[in-house]
């Protein structure tokens, strides 16, 4: 028997719905971008072309990532992180995995490509993915709050609340 969830229509519920939609959208976007890259690695047609011919600094970043093999790592974690978000499993961890990726995507899309006009363009996922990542993390802030501790002590995981 599935567990029943009680809710009422208020600001809290609408906020949760909006953040859940963002979580799923971000997850889907990560899955698509990661999968598109791996499709080409297996000789299959990609969903979209991966741009390595943007502004010179952006191109340098992407070319270097590819040449040193880190692009493979990034694209793999995109898929793993995306699946976590879409299937609502280990979401706080999935968001942490996605954060460095979305930040670099944002940095590449806005700073390196000098597309400052797209900074708050809601249709430009190059920028929006990072903001979505942050916003959804705010929704799960209670899982990150224990990380912000001034004097941390070592110890086992015993007693850590789920």
């Amino acid at each position: 028997m599935s567990r029943m969830i009680e809710y009422e229509w208020n600001v809290g519920t609408v906020t949760k719905l909006a953040l859940s939609a963002m979580r799923i959208y971000l997850g889907c976007w990560m899955i698509v971008t990661g999968t598109s890259y791996w499709l080409t690695e297996f000789g299959l047609p990609s969903i979209f072309p991966h741009l390595v011919r943007n502004a010179p600094l952006s191109s340098q970043l992407l070319v270097t990532l590819m040449e040193v093999g880190l692009y493979d790592v990034v694209k793999t974690w995109e898929i793993i992180g995306g699946l976590m978000l879409v299937f609502n499993r280990f979401v706080p961890l999935g968001l942490i995995i996605c954060l460095p990726i979305t930040f670099i995507v944002w940095y590449n899309a806005i700073i390196l490509n000098e597309r400052y006009g797209h900074l708050f363009n809601p249709t430009h996922m190059g920028a929006m993915c990072f903001y979505m990542n942050i916003l959804v993390m705010v929704g799960y802030a209670r899982y990150y709050a224990p990380l912000v501790v001034t004097r941390a002590k070592m110890g086992s995981v015993k007693g850590v609340e789920n």
């Binding site: 567990r3 969830i5 009680e6 889907c28 976007w29 879409v86």
Partner: peptide, 29 residues
């Protein structure tokens, strides 16, 4: 007014939404 929804129904709903998003993202890209 309080309402009830089963966790399973919510999960199925979110997977359906994910499929819609996936289709849209693939199309857009």
């Amino acid at each position: 007014n309080k309402h009830l929804i089963s966790e399973r129904r919510l999960s199925i709903l979110s997977i359906l939404v994910a499929f819609l998003f996936l289709g849209n993202i693939c199309y857009q890209l």
